[in-house]
Design a protein around this nucleic acid. Sequence first.
DNA 1: ACTTTTGCAATACACTTGCATCGTGAACGA
DNA 2: TCGTTCACGATGCAAGTGTATTGCAAAAGT
Lengths: 196, 196
Amino acid sequence: MPKKVDRHERRTLIADALMRVAARQGVEAVSLRHVAAEAGVSAGMVQHYFRTKDEMMAFAMAVVRERTQVRVTDAIARLGDDPSPRLLLRTMIAAVLPLTEESCADGRVALAFLAYAAVRPEVAAGMREDTGQMLDAVAGLIPAHGREEYAAGVLALMEGLGIHLLGGHYTAEQALAALDAHLDLVFGSAEGAAGR
Amino acid sequence: MPKKVDRHERRTLIADALMRVAARQGVEAVSLRHVAAEAGVSAGMVQHYFRTKDEMMAFAMAVVRERTQVRVTDAIARLGDDPSPRLLLRTMIAAVLPLTEESCADGRVALAFLAYAAVRPEVAAGMREDTGQMLDAVAGLIPAHGREEYAAGVLALMEGLGIHLLGGHYTAEQALAALDAHLDLVFGSAEGAAGR
DNA sequence: ACTTTTGCAATACACTTGCATCGTGAACGA
DNA sequence: TCGTTCACGATGCAAGTGTATTGCAAAAGT
């Protein structure tokens, strides 16, 4: 073999450029040449690592998913041993929400991809899987009856808060306040029912 | 003046075509010629009624906003006199959610525009306004303390449910169950606090 | 009847798009 | 040292993009 090149590294480099473009100018601005320019490489190279644009998109999306997962597990790890389910859940959600500069960029990309996936059934399947996973995780943290409904609600709330945050409709404080209020309800009500 | 033509009607006709295209193939597929073909008119005519593509987009978005508003007020009107705040709120939200064929198409368009607006500050302003309005309306229906947080949460929940519905992550039943569960919490908790 | 205004179609233009096809240079195995 | 294999750059191409421009028919005012 000639020249050793970390293929995956190159691909992520390009994917990063793609995400910067998508975050700044929207998905519609994502093109081979734009991404190449943003990455500081030739258009030919982009083509070399991704045979098609859709392949590039799919990869970039996988990167985003992976990164948010890392953010979540990191945040949870920082909690120390045996945190309360409620704190755990809150930390998880806060890690996903576009609150920091970095996660905000990811959020923009995710939103762009959401629209992109809306008309690409095969791409949407991946997201469905993700939410299913999250749903299980959340359901496991919620006490008692109505797990499924509550879990679905919490997940939807998270998604919605993310959207409103990205749109600048809510401030970080408002979003977190709404989240906490909701968690109060979910955990408080079960406590009340169990305590009675 | 020659030929009387209902300008607004023509524009909505074109906007409708635009929305069909956006719903079917995504925003990126929205182009002058595609829209013209979908509307069954010449590309020149589209250009005649919208000097620029962005103008066309903005108009289409306004149509969507307007239509969902109509759906909401209609649904509320069907409720009869003096419905409970909770029922009113539920009806409002159910009217917005992409549950029917029709509102689902609108939802796809709205999602596409959400991404579109994410990088167009002047477009995003309109949406911000809308959410602000909705927030006030919702807050007015929610009892007692923590209005703002709860209202923000309810709105976010709605948005999130919409997203998950569009993505096919939730079924209509699941979404409604989650909504009802949430409303149980919001209205039930206040009642519990007041009753104590 | 004549001019003006308007609705609309057609075309032209400068770009951009994704993708295929070359060419080249360099690293390795033989 | 030769040949193969791979990374990458450059170029080309057909299709599609938004927009400006032109042309033309018809309706209204005068």
